Simulated assay, not measured.
Amino acid sequence: MKLTQNLASEIIGRLTPYIRVPMNLMDPSGRIVASSDPARHMQVHEGAIAVMERGKDLVIDEGNLHEFPGTKKGVNLPIVHRGQMAGVVGLTGEPDEIMQAAGVTKASVEIALEQIYIQRQVFYQERQWENWLHQLLHPREIDEAYLAEEARYTLNTVMEGEWRVLVLQSDQSLSDKSGQLTALLDQSDMKPLFAVPYREYEFIIALHADHESTALAEKILQQSGIHARIGIGERNNGITGLRASYFEAKQALRFSGKDISIADSSDWVVERLIDAIPDEAFGSIALSYRKKLETLEPVYIFTLRELLARNFKIKETADALHIHRNTLNYRLAQIEEKTGLTPGELKDTILIAIILHHIDY
């Protein structure tokens, strides 16, 4: 990574209040790209050129000042980043007096370069994962062989093994929450396959199946301060397993409703099974009964949902509805009379549950 004008200017601006010595930062061509003395900006620094050519420190004093036209007494040190020359830092003054400050400045610049490099790498990798994820979650079909190749050669990842996907869903944008959520994952000693925003209001985390996904979901909601719900998919194998786990997590969020903050797919097996019935098959078998149920007043539909949620326990359902159990029995009798379906009988109960799954209200 090379020292650029924008980066050098920011570094000079931050260091000047603390290092009260005239300071220059030079790019690899020897040009002053930032200086505490604006008059020297963009001048060619002969001392910096020498440092770049020799790859070592240069002290300019009375003895060699004439060798570097346009320079002043001082210390010029090479800035090295990941084994490559990135530029030169120069401080003006008596060399013996400013050598320590020059060393501090050099170290500060090199640390800044490394931090920026890491941030860019993380950002670049996140964009690569986002692109890969969009292909994985294509609504129609995927090319598993292509995705495996992309993962291996672009993302340096092998997709073998079992994974479980967590989907954070929020009514606020999650696109700028990557750093915060990644920090929480680091604190949890969990190394996800990836943790990236997907669209604006979703954030996806893919964990090894052995990790405690529910505990992580609870920690995210408690410590992140993000208002969100989290769906957890089943453990599945490989690339197709990742895709399946994502859609299972989304299903769990859909089935659970807004009052449940963590929805585990394993808690919604019956609903998932019902959801898997093709619309055509459902329509041809259950349409007549659906029409009858849809003619019922909303209070009857609500009563049936409450009854199903409480495993057809009459007293518990009556208490939840704040009605007398006789009133509940009357409603059930009315439902049977209007639809021909008897709530409480196994076959009719299954049919009612399936139809209610397809009714929105």
Score class of each variant (00 low, 15 high):
residue 283 G to L: 02
residue 270 V to L: 14
residue 81 H to V: 07
residue 63 G to E: 12
residue 13 G to M: 04
residue 253 L to E: 14
residue 361 Y to N: 15
residue 31 R to T: 11
residue 30 G to M: 07
residue 33 V to N: 02
residue 241 G to H: 07
residue 71 T to F: 05
residue 331 R to M: 12
residue 193 L to M: 08
residue 182 T to L: 13
residue 107 A to M: 11
residue 285 I to R: 01
residue 165 V to N: 01
residue 104 V to P: 07
residue 108 S to H: 10
residue 77 L to R: 05
residue 75 V to T: 05
residue 134 H to W: 10
residue 175 S to K: 13
residue 116 I to E: 15
residue 17 P to S: 05
residue 358 H to C: 08
residue 347 K to D: 14
residue 58 L to F: 03
residue 15 L to H: 01
residue 147 L to Q: 02
residue 60 I to L: 04
residue 75 V to Q: 03
residue 213 S to M: 01
residue 89 V to F: 04
residue 73 K to S: 09
residue 266 S to N: 13
residue 208 H to I: 09
residue 183 A to T: 12
residue 164 R to P: 09
residue 89 V to E: 14
residue 35 S to C: 09
residue 158 V to C: 04
residue 52 M to R: 02
residue 135 Q to W: 06
residue 207 L to M: 03
residue 296 L to Y: 12
residue 209 A to E: 04
residue 281 A to Y: 09
residue 297 E to Q: 14
residue 213 S to H: 00
residue 175 S to Y: 09
residue 153 Y to K: 12
residue 107 A to D: 09
residue 183 A to E: 12
residue 231 G to R: 00
residue 231 G to T: 00
residue 134 H to D: 14
residue 69 P to A: 13
residue 170 S to F: 08
residue 154 T to Q: 10
residue 302 F to H: 14
residue 303 T to D: 11
residue 114 E to A: 10
residue 354 I to C: 09
residue 235 R to H: 09
residue 303 T to A: 10
residue 224 S to P: 01
residue 44 V to H: 11
residue 58 L to S: 00
residue 148 A to W: 10
residue 136 L to P: 03
residue 166 L to E: 01
residue 203 F to Y: 13
residue 214 T to M: 11
residue 11 I to F: 12
residue 322 H to S: 13
residue 338 K to E: 13
residue 251 Q to T: 02
residue 243 R to I: 01
residue 54 R to I: 00
residue 334 Q to N: 10
residue 233 G to T: 02
residue 14 R to S: 15
residue 252 A to W: 07
residue 251 Q to F: 15
residue 249 A to Y: 06
residue 217 A to Y: 00
residue 41 H to A: 09
residue 345 E to A: 13
residue 117 Y to K: 12
residue 89 V to M: 05
residue 187 Q to V: 05
residue 18 Y to V: 03
residue 16 T to L: 12
residue 200 E to T: 07
residue 360 D to I: 06
residue 7 L to F: 15
residue 24 N to A: 08
residue 42 M to Y: 07
residue 304 L to V: 00
residue 238 G to N: 07
residue 267 D to H: 08
residue 197 P to M: 05
residue 102 A to F: 00
residue 350 I to W: 15
residue 332 L to H: 01
residue 202 E to N: 13
residue 356 L to H: 06
residue 173 S to M: 13
residue 31 R to M: 13
residue 236 N to W: 04
residue 218 E to G: 00
residue 300 Y to T: 02
residue 161 G to W: 04
residue 304 L to E: 11
